[in-house]
Design a protein around this nucleic acid. Sequence first.
DNA 1: ATGAAAGCGCTAACAC
DNA 2: GTGTTAGCGCTTTCAT
Lengths: 379, 379
Amino acid sequence: MTRGTGRDGSPGAPRSVDVARVAGVSQKTVSRVFNDEPYVSADVRRRVLDAAEQLGYRRNNAARALASGRTRSIGVVTLGTALYGPASLLMGVERVVRDTGYALRVVNTMEGDPAGLAGAVGSLLDQGVDGIVISEPIDEPGGEAEPLRVDVPVLVLGAPQPFAASTVLFGGRGADRMARAVVEHLLDLGHATVHHLAGPQRWYAAKDRLEGWRSALAAHGRDEPPVIEGDWSAASGYAAGRELAADPEVTAVFAANDDMAIGLIRALAEAGRRVPQDVSVVGFDDIPVAAYVTPPLTTVRQPFDTVAQEGLKRLVHAIDNPQAQALPASDPPVDLIVRASTQPPPPRTPPGRRRHSVSRSPGEVPPHRLPEKDPSTRR
Amino acid sequence: MTRGTGRDGSPGAPRSVDVARVAGVSQKTVSRVFNDEPYVSADVRRRVLDAAEQLGYRRNNAARALASGRTRSIGVVTLGTALYGPASLLMGVERVVRDTGYALRVVNTMEGDPAGLAGAVGSLLDQGVDGIVISEPIDEPGGEAEPLRVDVPVLVLGAPQPFAASTVLFGGRGADRMARAVVEHLLDLGHATVHHLAGPQRWYAAKDRLEGWRSALAAHGRDEPPVIEGDWSAASGYAAGRELAADPEVTAVFAANDDMAIGLIRALAEAGRRVPQDVSVVGFDDIPVAAYVTPPLTTVRQPFDTVAQEGLKRLVHAIDNPQAQALPASDPPVDLIVRASTQPPPPRTPPGRRRHSVSRSPGEVPPHRLPEKDPSTRR
DNA sequence: ATGAAAGCGCTAACAC
DNA sequence: GTGTTAGCGCTTTCAT
């Protein structure tokens, strides 16, 4: 076979012995230089580096991994979607992983994948990773059965406590606290209660938001309206909006993501219920267009970068110190961004004069407020 | 050191010799079984598989890579953004790569990264990949200098012909053809010309769309209005919209992505120019909310999956047959999705009676059409 | 159809 | 500070 990275009949990539020969040192010394080990004189180091440069030497990772038992790589399990949340998290993870000097391997579990999470993790293990990040896991039916037997540290991002294993760390996203902030914002505005358009409940992220909504409502002694479950898509938000529009009691809706909120708003508008005059709507994610739709969307921004950074710091720590205690979790800040899709509820209309039966050109939308470029309100 | 993937003082992972011993065969036979090599009797195969199962054997990839000189992995260079286009492409690539039996390694070049593309590719080469996918490259200043010296096949997705190297393949995205389709749609509706809100010109994808727009206009003998350059963000679309709104000649705008189109529409609406009555707007990407914003956006859907699939097929082919001719490129289909943001231009207003000076409640938006769930029009 | 021997290029442990 | 000696767990080549 051709040697190293050399393809076709090429001479073959230079190895560390070659560098050693050119530099006039032993092969081990070359290894020392490239691993930044102590006890190499500056002079020798230079000679080695020069020789390597001249030869175009690049060390062979397979050999390194084989000899050391470590691959210096971290695997990520993602859902195979371009949804804003998961995609942002993945990018955040990539950014941090590179800084830590690890390489990144990616595998995804598609929803409905027969192998599911276990399969994805297994494939990562096959590749030989030093640690695993599971991003936004979903609850595959039957997946609970095997509690994920792995011998490398695992970091779970965007889920509360799904897996039982001694090596598992959690990078809480605090979505429940964020959801609470949303509900409280709406309650503060004077809404009697808040409806919830939930995400698919197989996603821990969706469950989390539902939980936050539920507990906030309970904490304030409000009654809990029935939950509608969407699938994250604007289409499902639209469908939910048609239902909700028919109910005059609905004055405030918290959608589990911005896409659904946008679909929802459209359905409400078509039904003649104006946002925010008649109904307030809050989304979740702060997708790039959230400030520019009509009306600009009140939503929650998640600190993906912070979460990725904090989580990976702990994962790398666990990899480097197998026996050590896990670093304590830190909760990311909540960022509620108030724009124009929320306001106090309309005055109670007397029963019998249902607001949505009032004649109004369908789809008319309220005057705009200027969209803002930056997070306007923090709490 | 602990053996294989075994961490802490654990017994160490089983190796193929262990399996061989249990199965009562030679180690080589185990290797044969796991590589699906011929000449293993069904009986022996079963025994080996059972033994492996029982021991929890998983083969060591580092050793495999070292011995064979191939890592069976493909590296991807992405921008570190969660933008819909790049993120979708990445997911498409992931999906296909897994099917081909390769592992995926990801590295990103952030815009302005000093090391840039060369650094990202180098880091992939260090990791030892059998092939490289460069997704949506951007034109780093000075990056042209080094023509990307690599000895593995490279697939470039979403760019025309940026790099010179014998091993480079192109997975054209046909964005220029798509841009032409957009312009022709608008021209067919009767618009005198089409303005273009371009993406950042360091992106090949943005250049591509600009090219398509330009050539379509030329082909139809229309004059080419000045181009405004945005940065893909809705905010930049909004800024562009404020400029464009002041010019009564503008009746049709092609934005290089949906986010900018949405910002643009908002700015136009605030300036009293209705979409689509006064100005038609077309986006690009068909982001998930495109059908649900106001008005539902006419846009172009890119066949990310097809592109990823076709491209990777060729990449894998090149990897497996080093000397062979590259497979011919195939252009993906163009998918123009006509929704409610485009219509024929308003009748020419006599000079002096500028439409946008007409009193109108700012931000009023036209009645909706029903959003559609599926691509409505193909061409 | 199966096995024995010889590395792949590096790191680890210990000597000098 | 530097070199020597063994492997790491597989694939390869060649016998059988």
